[in-house]
């Protein structure tokens, strides 16, 4: 029974990987093993452009979200903050809200800002802003969990020994929460790589990402080279998730319990 459920969870991932090596072009029949579709994919300029956009979007948004989210977690954990419950509530919203609601909210916000101030022309920058917005809460949870699990006497010891607050943060707190920050950034990158809905609504001409490319291909009919592309994405996500899990053992389980 449980084995069946595991099979159920992995069946879609496996079928995509297997079919990316399937020589048969159409239908669900097996036509022999081939790596031909990976060659087709490599020669597709659209896929390369989308990969480039995806990478820029993922790296830049992850960088911004990691810095802002980690600092936010630190502030929440260590200081009295005005409107603390409001802040925590606001951070919960992107986790629970259907992503399409967030997508259209940002779309309308960008459109109004464009009308009134001439800002936020749709494209990679607007997508980066959108991704950072849904990444920050996840970074804050992961880093916050790490901060909560930290022994406070270490920071006290550092201060007792005469270090000022910035020295304490740089030499004691930061090294201790570094694994959490790295794990958080990997998960944030995975979130960005996985996102389709928010990207779809906040993208402009020329800022197509890999998930958007996959979506439009699937709408026209699944082709084997799309399976090859998906296999790449699956491999990257799995590597990042596994690395993050090793860094921060079963953080997700811990933090969902806290929600």
């Amino acid at each position: 029974m449980s084995a069946l459920l595991y099979a159920f969870l992995y069946a879609p991932i496996l079928v995509v990987i297997v079919y990316s090596f399937n020589a048969a072009r159409f239908g669900s029949t097996w036509g022999g093993f081939t790596t031909r579709w990976y060659g087709v994919l490599m020669e597709n300029p659209l896929a390369w452009a989308a990969a480039r956009n995806t990478l820029i979007l993922g790296l830049v948004s992850t960088g911004i979200a990691t810095v802002l989210g980690s600092l936010l977690a630190f502030g929440l954990a260590r200081f009295r903050i005005p409107l603390k419950s409001f802040t925590i509530g606001l951070l919960r919203v992107p986790i629970f809200i259907p992503d399409i609601v967030m997508a259209v909210a940002l779309l309308m916000f960008y459109s109004l800002a464009r009308q009134w101030f001439g800002l936020f022309e749709l494209g990679l920058p607007t997508m980066i802003v959108a991704h950072v917005t849904f990444q920050i809460p996840f970074v804050t949870i992961v880093v916050g969990a790490r901060l909560a699990g930290m022994d406070p006497s270490l920071e006290e010891a550092s201060r007792d020994l005469g270090a000022n607050e910035i020295q304490t943060f740089l030499h004691v707190t930061l090294p201790l929460i570094a694994p959490g920050i790295i794990a958080a950034s990997m998960l944030a990158f995975t979130l960005s790589l996985d996102d389709f809905v928010v990207s779809f609504f906040t993208s402009g001409p020329g800022s197509t990402t890999l998930p958007i490319l996959i979506y439009s291909s699937v709408k026209r009919g699944i082709t084997p080279d799309i399976n090859a592309l998906s296999t790449f994405i699956i491999a990257i996500s799995m590597a990042a998730t596994l690395a993050a899990t090793v860094l921060q053992r079963s953080w997700k389980y811990r933090s969902i319990r806290d929600i």
């Binding site: 969870l9 879609p12 991932i13 995509v16 998930p211 996959i214 979506y215 699937v218 699956i234 997700k252």
Partner: peptide
Amino acid sequence: VIPFWTNLLIRTY
């Protein structure tokens, strides 16, 4: 947890 972090679009199609 691993499948959850894999692209939803891919798992759906």
